[in-house]
């Protein structure tokens, strides 16, 4: 469950006239536990900023974000890192796989950071995830040998390693062809369903919206977003 209320976010960099740049204001925004929701809106409307605030990579100026009864806005920097790695799975538009790690090592990256659990267990789990997405045989390959669609599947596996409470996907289909777009949405929803995760996916691809239980337009939940709240 994601609950956002009275959220305000300003970018720190002042604009030309000296006033603080306004980023985003969200009065109220909720995604029920276990739901799969899409967040739509044009470029620069604040979708990525809102995802960053929910993930804890950005700090709001004011307001409250609650994820599964955990008040994210009250966490310290150190606690935020822990919160992200244990509760949040993130899939990025450009995949962001590390080229010096193999496919399975990329999937295990959250474990290399958090170090929670036994390595052997995590390796087994990473292999299971890769098997689920049909990439078991590519486990030891470097990511650059994979197609874009395959790389995005690896990124989804990485996001799911720690069985996150929420799965945030920031335009994960932006660089993919139509078939791969459908495949990635299938995969995200299947994984979220399998682990009871709440899925929130940013997209401006209208052809995908029918696949989601909830569709939120950023214009309807955020007030006066400016171009500074970019992607």
């Amino acid at each position: 469950m994601i609950e956002v209320s009275g959220l305000e976010f300003h970018y720190q960099t002042p604009v030309a006239d000296g006033a603080a740049a306004f980023g985003l204001h969200v009065e109220s925004f909720n995604v029920p536990a276990g739901a799969n929701a899409a967040l739509v809106g044009p470029s620069g409307s604040g979708k990525t900023t809102l995802l960053g605030l929910i993930a804890g990579t950005l700090r709001p100026t004011s307001g409250r974000i609650n994820v599964n009864d955990q008040v994210v806005t009250a966490l310290s920097e150190r606690e935020l890192g822990r919160y992200r790695i244990l509760n949040v799975g993130q899939v990025f538009q450009t995949f962001e796989l590390l080229n010096y790690l193999s496919v399975i090592e990329n999937v295990m990256l959250p474990w290399f950071i958090a170090g929670v659990g036994q390595q052997l267990d995590m390796r087994t789990r990473a292999m299971e995830l890769l098997r689920d997405v049909g990439l078991q045989s590519r486990a030891k390959s470097p990511p650059e040998e994979l197609s874009q669609g395959e790389q995005q599947r690896v990124a989804v596996c990485r996001a799911m390693l720690n069985r996150p409470a929420i799965l945030l996907a920031d335009e994960p289909t932006g660089n993919l062809d139509q078939q791969n777009k459908q495949n990635v949405v299938d995969l995200l929803q299947a994984q979220a369903r399998a682990f009871g995760s709440t899925l929130l996916m940013v997209t401006h691809d209208e052809s995908l919206l029918s696949r989601f239980d909830h569709v939120h337009d950023i214009h309807s939940i955020a007030a006066s977003p400016t171009s500074r709240a970019g992607q």
Binding site: R78, G81, V88, E96, L98, I113, A114
Partner: peptide, 16 residues
């Protein structure tokens, strides 16, 4: 920089 940003977004602290 991009690699470190990814690590940070996943949950790595500055000390990590």
């Amino acid at each position: 920089t991009g690699e470190f940003r990814t690590l940070s977004r996943i949950g790595a602290s500055r000390s990590y």
